[in-house]
Design a binder for these strands. Structure first.
Length: 364
DNA sequence: AAACCGTGGTG
DNA sequence: TCACCAAGGTT
């Protein structure tokens, strides 16, 4: 596809220089960021970029520090059991990232002697590394020119060039615009500078245009439409699903957990067993056939706990009620009897920690 | 290619 | 309260 050039090359150079000057002055200190002049560590760049996929800097920082302390090198991460990686990732979300991260670490360690490839095409073939992350690693870790386009860059480009067509259809055009501005020198600094600009000044809600190094060039600002960009296609509304979770306590006080299948929602994470999640409300009689133990193995009838666990996923709301019962001992069952004081060690996603919190406050 | 995949902060 | 949104990738 052809686009008419939005600006002369000399203007592009002036803009990138101005942005880099802003970056040199206002650079944020982040734990994965090398000090000015220091070489970047590809392992840290990769680890941070994967964690930052659809995830805020504030949420990532403690996880990044914990991972780096526990697994200082890609080889160390590759040598860890995947269950430990899932556990360490618990709470960050998008759990396929953790599996892909571990698989990627093993591939880089076994096939490449622990060294990441430097070119986008090779990086792109590794699990969990898509177009954005491949470009980001090539630029930030290795200093290669790459057109790095994330949500920040899309927003900045849409505003700078007053692009009013909606995402996601306009993505290719925004990337072409980003490419026009991307310099060959200081590739990593430039990539981080545009993203920092989007994350700090050119923010989604109320951009701080008065402080922006690109304000004189910004067509969106000139037209007074900057805050409304980028336009997005309307999102489908989220349905609500419902389920009943089974809090089962053994004679010794441990509670029954299960590991979810490796694919799909919360794949590979631990859970408090539950019914299916469906739009219709459950009644207890109907739900019992989903219980991991037959009523005959219980010391008492199911006891509904007061309260409701609400949780919102990307594409639906979930409402879980919790029922509790004591087992008649420690029956053999598919799953894991986990002592209460070891729940914290389990790979429990946030939803399941909400279930645990409700159960611990209302049961026994 | 459209759907799927978490969570927490924000207004 | 609730929709929106993040340094996206996979199928």
């Amino acid at each position: 596809m052809l686009y008419c050039s939005p600006m002369p090359l000399s203007d592009a150079r002036a803009l990138s220089d101005r942005l880099l000057a802003w970056y040199d002055r206002d650079r944020r200190l982040l734990p994965w960021r090398a000090a000015p002049g220091e070489p970047a560590d590809a392992y840290r760049v990769w680890l941070s970029e994967v964690m930052l996929q659809q995830t805020t800097v504030a949420a990532v920082i403690p996880y990044f520090n914990a991972f780096l302390a526990r697994w200082p090198t890609v080889a160390a991460l590759a040598a860890a059991p995947v269950e430990e990686v899932m556990q360490a990732w618990a709470g960050l979300g998008y759990y396929a990232r953790a599996r892909n991260l571990h698989q990627c670490a093993k591939t880089v360690t076994e096939w490449r002697g622990g060294h990441f490839p430097e070119d986008e095409e090779s990086l792109r073939r590794l699990p969990g590394i898509g177009d954005y992350t491949a470009a980001a690693i090539a630029a930030i870790a290795f200093g290669h020119r790459a057109v790095v386009v994330d949500g920040n860059v899309e927003r900045v480009m849409a505003r700078l060039f007053a692009v009013t067509d909606p995402l996601p259809g306009v993505k290719p055009r925004l990337k072409a615009l980003a490419a026009e501005l991307t310099p060959t020198e200081r590739a990593g600094d430039y990539a981080q500078a545009v993203m920092d600009l989007g994350a700090t000044l050119c923010s989604p809600r109320s951009p701080a245009c008065g402080l922006c190094p690109w304000r004189e060039a910004c067509r969106g600002l000139a037209q007074g439409i900057e805050a409304s960009l980028p336009a997005r296609a309307p999102k489908p509304e989220r349905p609500t699903r419902r389920g009943i979770a089974f809090w089962i306590v053994a004679r010794d006080g441990s509670v029954l957990l299960r590991r979810r299948p490796p694919q799909g929602l919360l794949g590979g994470m631990m859970e408090v067993p539950s019914t299916e999640w469906r739009p219709e409300v459950w009644d207890l009689d109907e739900a019992q056939s989903f219980a991991p133990l037959p009523a005959a193995r219980l010391a008492e009838p199911w006891r509904p706990l007061p309260g409701l666990v609400r949780h919102t996923f990307t594409h639906f709301h979930l409402e879980l009620t919790v029922v509790a019962a004591r087992a008649t001992g420690q029956p053999p069952v598919r799953g894991l009897w986990c002592p209460l004081d070891r729940l914290a060690e389990q790979a429990l996603p946030t939803l399941m920690r909400k279930v645990v919190r409700l159960a611990l406050s209302k049961a026994y």
